[in-house]
């Protein structure tokens, strides 16, 4: 294939990736509006967002095709993959600690059960240190 044809292939692939990424970002917006409670909304905020961003960056990299800026895009993708779960975890933990999680909407809630069990245990034995905090 000639240089021109490679360019066209890269452009088409880039367009497909951009479309996929935009669709996933749109799904994230729909999800965060529709889901019933805080923890489910965090799902909408983490997963489509990460893959959507990765696809958009791949599309951009296919379009730019020059060496320098593409490495920074790899960096952005790696940052997002490393930090999105951490942000979601902190929001979830803050949700539990401020009482924003509604146990009645969940099928099973083992974290609240364990926390209550630990509280009962701590109140029964005030001299023992709770190993978990």
């Amino acid at each position: 294939m000639t240089q021109d044809q490679w360019t066209t292939v890269a452009d088409v692939a880039s367009a497909v990736c951009l479309l996929g990424g935009a669709f996933l970002a749109f799904a994230a917006g729909v999800g965060v509006l529709r889901f019933p409670d805080l923890l489910a909304r965090m799902h909408a905020g983490t997963k489509p967002q990460v893959l959507g961003l990765a696809l958009v960056l791949i599309g951009l990299a296919l379009r730019l095709r020059s060496g320098g800026a593409v490495w920074a895009l790899v960096l952005v993708a790696v940052f997002q993959m490393l930090t999105a779960p951490v942000a979601a975890h902190m929001v979830g933990r803050a949700g539990y600690r401020t009482g924003k999680v509604r146990s009645d909407l969940l099928v099973v809630d083992e974290l609240t059960d364990d926390q209550e069990r630990a509280q009962v245990r701590d109140q029964g034995r005030p001299d023992d240190d709770d190993p978990r905090d």
Binding site: A25, M42, L64
Partner: peptide, 25 residues
């Protein structure tokens, strides 16, 4: 709650990244 708003605005920022990347592409 504040946390719902935090998640929503995080999604807005990510959409901004996608939009800027679209422009650059």
């Amino acid at each position: 709650s504040m946390l719902d708003r935090t998640i929503a605005l995080d999604i807005v920022v990510t959409t901004m990244i996608a939009a800027v990347a679209l422009y650059a592409a």
